[in-house]
Design a binder for these strands. Structure first.
Length: 619
RNA sequence: GGGGGCGUAGCUCAGUUGGUUAGAGUGACGGCCUGUCACGCCGUAGGUCGCGGGUUCGAGCCCCGUCGCUCCCGCCA
């Protein structure tokens, strides 16, 4: 029912030669041309319809569904009659044409049916904990425990098949672009930055541990040092962090890639045709951003969209109106001296009061903000007039300036996000933009809108620990003169916080597909970069010994990125949850309910690994 | 670690203000039916209302606790 009906990988059947033990055709294959042939099908009972004098069985396999029919007088009747949903049967019989009035147009095989002459049961099924037939929602734990049944269902079967096709398409396109696929180790060393590692104890080296790779980051850079020029891999990555709907617990796959002797634009030029091509191939009528994708500097994105992963299907653009509230003729004290961001709500003047109240409540309760002020722009005697609780504080001249800055007109509204901290004002505005866009139905479906976010800051100030942190990827090359960078004083916060990196994200419809960078391949600059983030030279030397050492033997300039496979497939499949495109996913608590993992280890195993388990004390 | 939602038959759900014996659909089982394709009709079985405690004459419903699932925040260089 889900695969291509034309495809089959079973020996052909010739009259006079013994019939294949299980099937001569797939359940998606039979057509009018087969009428009169004696054939054999194997598959699952999708549906059974008993008419007393006539019994229909819809037999299903990977390729489709074929209706099979038998009458009580037939010798095989007893066997077919006892079969229930999801039993596995082998049915042999003659293909017959259906009469005009019994043709099923919804079924590719609907012009014919199999008149059953022989039947055998290959596998029985207990009463189902999860019906395969139908398209209802079921509890996640039941679905996961009986994943093999869930996977038989049409939607999931189709998604998983789609995933495979997307991966093959990616692989083909990468190879066409001159990339070579290599595998990198799964058992490797712990990486000190970033996510929590999964550790694997060493039997041979008591007290020592391997770590599963969070990403093949260092390996792919070493592959460049080794002179392989263009590498890619559909790479498994392991991170021991909590899950989200679009973030698997434990493990996920990336299209990991790296290139030598490239600038940022070269990486974009290599990735764009691959992503555009894959999305176009599976778009089914949805539009895909043409290459080159827009490039948006991080600072601009934070201002205009309030996030570093903007959904460009949403037409709302945020404006900074701090200066308007600082005007002397504007007497609204609550916003004075703060960063004020204005979020346009096109056409919102016709919205009921509850629309505004609901957004205000959301800002207060969900976002912990003091509120979301607003002004509605109306026409009063040919002039622009403000309406709403705070409109009286804003005289016409200021209102006009605001309208110009935020590009709003009569009939629109403006919401305000204000905070003493610029980042917080931007973040609330970003969330409000998403909500307003959705509430007003402004986000167009049926489009894939890509963009690159570029020029990420290299560092950020960590207020809690009073220190400078890497803001994203510590291996990125700073956009800074080499000699001046090496001479930087780590306490020169103003300069350091202004440094951008050759670091970029690719975003589609508000979902971050990957981040990437032109790497820092200069050992001195790397040591300095880590020194600024508070790592002593010896520490950096030790933690990244392999990579630093390699960089001292002739390292090419290189860069890359790593789009998430799961998220790409989610977007293409149009689903909100990773479990819909992952064959055997874990639940939110990082458990595999089908295989019962994680599980206790035996004492023998622990002893071999020199491990003693110390459980947390019960509360 | 924190916050929200959900938990009633194998499965999907309903269950009024706290009031008699907790219902429906689907699946299972049995019977009838020769053209259905979500076949139809009749019947039967199936319940620790997640678990524990409390309030009450009386709790699926209210309160407290707890467990499970899920979504979000933290976290994810």
């Amino acid at each position: 029912m889900t695969g291509p009906p034309a495809t089959r990988h079973i020996p052909p059947f010739f009259e006079g030669i013994a019939m294949h033990a299980y099937r001569t055709h797939t359940c998606g294959e039979l057509r009018k041309v087969h009428v009169g042939s004696r054939v054999r099908l194997s598959g699952w009972v999708n549906r059974r319809r008993d008419h007393g004098g006539l019994l229909f069985v819809d037999l299903r396999d990977h390729y489709g569904i074929t209706q099979c029919v038998i009458e009580p007088e037939a010798t095989a009747f007893a066997t077919v009659d006892k079969a229930r949903s999801e039993w596995v049967l082998t049915l042999t019989g003659t293909v017959v044409a259906r009469t005009e009035d019994t043709i099923n147009k919804d079924l590719p095989t609907g012009e014919v049916e199999l008149r059953i002459e022989e039947a055998s049961v290959q596998g029985m099924a207990l009463e189902l904990p999860l019906p395969v037939f139908g398209d209802l929602d079921y509890p996640e734990d039941v679905r996961l425990k009986y994943r093999f049944l869930d996977l038989r269902r049409e939607r999931l079967h189709k998604n998983i098949t789609l995933r495979s096709k997307v991966i093959s398409s990616i692989r083909r396109r990468m190879i066409e672009q001159g990339f070579t696929e290599f595998q990198t180790p799964i058992l490797t060393a712990s990486s000190p930055e970033g996510a929590r590692d999964f550790l694997v104890p060493s039997r041979i080296h008591p007290g020592k541990f391997y770590a599963l790779p969070q990403a093949p980051q260092q390996f792919k850079q070493l592959i460049m040092v080794a002179g392989f020029d263009r590498y890619f891999q559909i790479a498994p990555c392991f991170r021991d962090e909590d899950a989200r709907a679009d973030r698997s617990p434990g493990e996920f796959y990336q299209l990991d890639l790296e290139m030598s002797f490239v600038t940022q634009d070269d990486v974009f030029a290599a990735v764009e045709p691959v992503l555009h091509g894959v999305f176009e191939e599976f778009s089914e009528g949805r539009s895909v951003s043409p290459a080159p994708f827009p490039r948006i500097p991080y600072d601009v994105s934070m201002l205009k969209y309030g996030v570093d992963k903007p959904d460009l299907r949403n037409p709302i653009i945020i404006a900074d109106v701090s200066s308007v509230f600082d005007r002397e003729d504007v007497v609204f004290k609550a916003f004075k001296g703060k960063t004020v961001r204005a979020i346009p709500a096109p056409g919102a003047a016709t919205q009921p009061r509850s629309f505004f109240d609901k957004l205000n409540d959301w800002a207060r309760t969900d976002m912990g903000a003091p509120g979301l002020g607003y002004v509605v722009f109306e026409n009063e005697g040919g002039a622009l007039a403000g309406k709403g609780p705070i409109a009286k504080f804003i005289p016409p001249a200021a209102l006009a300036e605001m309208a110009a800055k935020a590009d709003v007109k009569t009939g629109d509204a403006l919401f305000f996000s204000a905070d003493t901290k610029r980042d917080r004002a931007a973040a609330l505005a970003g969330q409000a933009r998403i909500r307003i866009g959705r509430e007003l139905g402004l986000v167009k479906e049926g489009e894939f809108k890509f963009c690159w976010i570029v020029d990420f800051p290299m560092y950020e100030w960590n207020e809690d620990e009073k220190k400078i942190d890497f803001s994203h990827n510590p291996f990125s090359m700073p956009q800074f003169d080499r000699e001046k960078f090496l001479a930087l004083d780590p306490v020169d916060r103003a300069t350091i916080e202004g440094i951008k990196a050759y670091q970029y994200d690719i975003v589609c419809n508000g979902i971050e597909l990957s981040s990437g960078a032109i790497r820092n391949h200069d050992p001195d600059v790397m040591l300095k970069a880590f020194e600024i983030a508070g790592y002593a030279r010896e520490e950096t030397e030790q933690k990244f010994a392999g990579m630093l050492n390699a960089f001292r033997y002739g390292a090419p300039p290189h860069g890359g990125t790593a789009p998430g496979i799961d998220r790409i497939v989610m977007l293409i499949a149009g689903v909100e949850n990773l479990r819909e495109v992952t064959m055997f996913p874990m639940n939110q608590q990082a458990q595999d309910l089908m295989m019962n993992a994680p599980n206790e280890a035996s004492l023998k195993q622990l002893r071999e690994l020199h491990i003693r388990v110390v459980l947390p004390e019960a509360k």
